[in-house]
Amino acid sequence: MRLDRASVVYGEHGATEGFRTSDGTWVRVERRQRWRINSAVWIGLEAAATIRGVKKPEWFQSATWSDTTRDVVWRVDEVELITSPVVGDLATAATLPDSWWTGLHESLAALGTHPTERVGMSQAHLTKRITEVFEGVDTIVDEWATAHTDLHWGNLSTEGHIIDWEDWGAAPRGHDAATLWQSALPDRRMASRVQHEFSADLETRSGKLAQLLQCANAIRAAARRGAPTPLSEPARAAADVLLAELRRA
């Protein structure tokens, strides 16, 4: 097949590119140093092909090859071309119909019950990130489910597709809803909408810990920057409520 070079979309960290193809599909190209190809992320798209009941691009095939000149390994995945735009921002999110939310509910419910040995968010990592910011919190998760783990407006299409499946795996129940909630924090109404839509997960102990993790991440990012961010201030306010609720439980 041929790649449409004019259609290129670059990944955030400069190690991936995506292209439309002459076969009417989408190709994602990635390069990694040799020692990093043992990561589960390396085969995330291919492994996600086993998931049923989730609206996402279909995976077709992949190829890998070693590049001794650059001392990297390349991987290319061919997937279904999704022509609907990503939601992208909170203004667009506010216009999504109820049917979109219903579809997302159905996708996340199906994903949550999918059996997997992959780890999307470990207990150790969650504990480390929360306790770096908040002291004296019992961080033991009592419910786990399979999650996408990077569910934000840029990874959701306006037709309800969930894209970018590199990091999926087991995570605390409510992790995906909490991640989406964090990306909605700058808009109080949208944050409330996410909490309302996914209250069954977010009101559980694991769901509250998942939200507290997102608050800690937002606060840590602001600390590294040395200034507040659109996420950090609402995250601090939300964290106060979550901490009180977790300590009363």
Rank of each mutant, 00 (worst) to 15 (best):
W59F: 15
W65M: 05
D67T: 06
V73N: 12
W74Q: 12
R75C: 05
R75F: 02
D77E: 15
V79E: 14
V79N: 11
V79F: 00
E80D: 13
S84E: 15
P85Q: 14
D89I: 10
L90P: 12
A91K: 10
A91S: 13
T92L: 01
T92Q: 13
A94F: 01
L96W: 06
L96K: 07
W100M: 07
W101F: 14
T102L: 08
G103T: 07
L104Q: 01
H105V: 00
L108V: 02
A110H: 01
L111Q: 01
G112E: 08
H114I: 10
P115K: 06
R118I: 09
V119R: 04
G120E: 00
H125C: 04
H125K: 08
L126T: 06
L126K: 02
R129V: 11
T131L: 15
E132F: 03
V133Y: 00
V133M: 13
V133L: 09
F134L: 01
E135W: 05
G136F: 02
V137N: 03
D138G: 07
I140V: 11
I140S: 10
V141E: 02
W144N: 01
A145R: 13
H148N: 10
T149L: 06
T149E: 04
W153Y: 11
S157D: 03
S157N: 05
E159W: 00
E159F: 00
E159I: 06
G160L: 08
G160T: 07
H161R: 00
D164K: 12
D164Y: 10
W165C: 09
E166F: 12
E166N: 11
